[in-house]
Simulated assay, not measured.
Amino acid sequence: MLKRFFQAASISCILSLTVACATSPTGRSQFTLFNEQQLAQMGSTSFEQLKQEEKVLKHASTRNYVQCITNQLLRANNIQGSWEVEVFDSPTPNAFALPGGKIGVYKGMIDLAETPDQLAAVIGHEIAHVVAKHGNERVSADFATQMGVAVLSGILANRDKPNDQLLAALGIGTQVGILLPFSRQHETEADLIGLDLMARAGFDPRQSINLWQNMAAKASTAPIEFLSTHPGPNNRIRTLENAMPSAMQAYEQAIRSGQRPNCKKP
């Protein structure tokens, strides 16, 4: 679904290419090449196309429930900007985020998340992707990799006896060695940022672990993590458990300050 956006972004951003040294909310150095406003516009365009292609859920109570959680996360964490969350009528337990504050949540994920706190973990995770500018990093990494492969491929292809197997291995190597681990890093960072966002908004961060336990139980098969863009459920749970003490402090402080979400699951 998001592949189309990242391909379009890589092509249309070439003329506005600028290297930026940025830092993520967790203090990680970031490699970003593209203008955030332009990416936001493309994210908005892609989101509108998705709403035309995917079936949008019309159930008012469910939509209000998702919006209630989103509003609480944004308001409690003083996250500014124009945000839009859409609910898609699909049994797939999935959610996604696009630059420009666009978030999609599938009904299957709402069903899987047994409590508002668990759904807050999902939506907080997606907000984190946008806040941390992961879309820009992914487009930048993809663009830089494609340019490097194109240059090296041209050199190899001009030899008297080009090595087709080497060219094929070059594409596989960059995909597994650079792009997929990079995306797994984003997922882990979004888990940690999302955990903090939900805790500060008064959602119980311990429910994030229950969410991933539910996800692991539902998955009958799972890809090998080394070839996956997402960390395995067990690794995600360990990461969340390690960060739980500080999250609980933020949660308890939020409760004391009056952050008590009132979002009721239909």
Rank of each mutant, 00 (worst) to 15 (best):
F143D: 04
H134A: 02
T221S: 14
F203P: 08
S220M: 15
T145R: 11
S183Y: 07
L167T: 00
G154C: 07
V131S: 01
Q175D: 14
A144H: 05
G171V: 02
F182C: 03
N214V: 11
A150S: 14
P205F: 08
A157E: 13
G173S: 12
D164K: 11
A144C: 06
T145W: 05
A157C: 05
H125Q: 05
A219V: 04
V131M: 08
T188V: 07
G154D: 13
A128C: 08
L166E: 08
T188E: 06
G173V: 08
N163A: 06
L170I: 07
A190Y: 02
A219L: 11
D142G: 10
N163T: 05
A128P: 03
K161C: 01
T174Y: 06
R206G: 06
L180V: 09
R206P: 00
R184Q: 12
I193G: 01
V130K: 03
K218C: 01
V151Y: 13
A168V: 00
A190P: 00
N163G: 06
P181Q: 08
Q207V: 00
I155L: 13
Q185V: 08
V151Q: 12
S208P: 03
I209D: 15
L195F: 04
A132C: 01
A217Y: 02
A216Y: 05
R159I: 08
G177W: 13
F203G: 05
E189F: 03
H186L: 09
W212S: 11
A169E: 13
D191L: 09
D142H: 06
K161E: 11
S183K: 06
A150I: 04
R138Q: 06
T188A: 09
A141S: 11
L211G: 05
S183C: 07
V176N: 12
Q185Y: 02
R159C: 10
L156S: 02
G177N: 14
G202R: 05
G154A: 15
L156I: 13
L156A: 07
L167A: 00
E189D: 04
G154N: 12
A216E: 08
I155S: 04
M198R: 00
D142W: 06
M198H: 00
D142A: 13
L152N: 04
E187M: 10
V176I: 15
A128V: 03
N136F: 03
R159V: 11
V130S: 03
V139L: 03
P162E: 01
T174W: 11
D164P: 00
